[in-house]
Design a protein around this nucleic acid. Structure first.
Lengths: 185, 185
DNA sequence: ATATATTATATGATTAGTCCTATATAAGGA
DNA sequence: TCCTTATATAGGACTAATCATATAATATAT
């Protein structure tokens, strides 16, 4: 469902091929919605069946033909309805927290190592977030709208704030383990 | 995958039926890993096939027989290996952020209403989080270990910190919209 | 000569998860 | 009487997403 609307959102800016879309996803929304290449192609096929997009074949020499997709009027109104509708609140799922929930079974040193690993991974993700503006800047050549840009950056701000909160949590846990504040039984 | 280990984690505390497990999930880990009833039963069947748990039929008068599952030695070692292993880092997915990414297409009043709705929903979730300790307290009758309890509470602390960070983000956006700081084109 | 990367699309197989419904019995309330 | 709730398990149908692989031509590097 979500991928469908993300694709419609981009095609509402400009017509793109599946190949284009994969690259756009990887440099703009991957930080909160990674998309698989094969799923993008399959979703484009479905959107075409539903009449929400239209395919235009663009022949190329020496390369496979491009299939460039254009949003239709029906597609545009579907998108606007969804955008104006209620936010699709997803129950938060976090597989790492399952490990935390049962981590008491492990000895303290292993728990400490685990949380230190988690903190390192989180700092790496934060470092990656810092590169997103540059990546989006490249896409901005295509869509030069300060208003759109503002909302793109909001999604990044959300990611940074959430990740910082989780990192602070992990650092706090590390301190408590080091201070011997974890009950031993 | 994750559900498998969550179930093994609980069965490592104590033998339970599928029905028991559903109730335990709903009062302990739902805030970061909601589980569907039918999926719990199917996963128990698979774990039995794999020899990680064993089923014991407990006949009852007036009620359907209970199928109580016990963790096996193989199951216990699978669980401990997974617990000690690397955290299963999942790429963060947030469908609501897709709406935010393309929200520039909407007029400012609708965006404001959307974010105010999001803030209300987030405050409701925070309020629900406040009830989790009491729910877990009930389960504590079964597993009375301050050490386990400590890690259970850590998962809640993570949820609260993340949700607060997102709420602050939403409130910040609302302020900016009200202050007319969103570019108009 | 060989391997790898880039452009471009597509399918098969599988997994995880959701939603709905079925079945069976008893208790309690409207 | 009928409806709902609680206890207890299970299967069918479906969707979203992942992983691996196939095809085909060119360009570039080793």
């Amino acid at each position: 469902m979500s991928l469908e609307f993300a694709i419609l959102g981009f095609l509402n800016y400009h017509p793109y091929s599946g190949y284009d879309l994969k690259k756009i996803f990887d440099t703009s929304v991957r930080h909160f919605w990674p998309a698989d290449q094969s799923q993008i192609y399959r979703t484009l096929a479905r959107l075409t069946e539903q009449g929400l997009v239209e395919m235009e074949k663009v022949a190329q020499e020496d390369r496979p033909d491009r299939k460039v997709y254009h949003i239709t009027e029906a597609g545009r109104s579907e998108l606007m309805n969804w955008l104006a509708g209620p936010p699709p609140l997803d129950g938060p799922r976090s597989a790492p927290l399952i490990q935390v929930f049962f981590a008491g079974q492990l000895p303290d040193e292993e728990i400490l190592a685990k949380f230190e690993g988690v903190a390192v991974a989180m700092r790496a993700i934060l470092a990656q977030y810092e590169q997103v503006p540059d990546q989006i800047e490249a896409y901005r050549m295509d869509i030069d709208s300060p208003r759109e840009h503002y909302f793109w950056m909001l999604t990044l701000d959300n990611g940074i704030r959430s990740m910082r909160a989780s990192l602070e949590w992990a650092e706090n846990v590390i301190e408590q383990i080091k201070a011997g504040k974890v009950p031993q039984k």
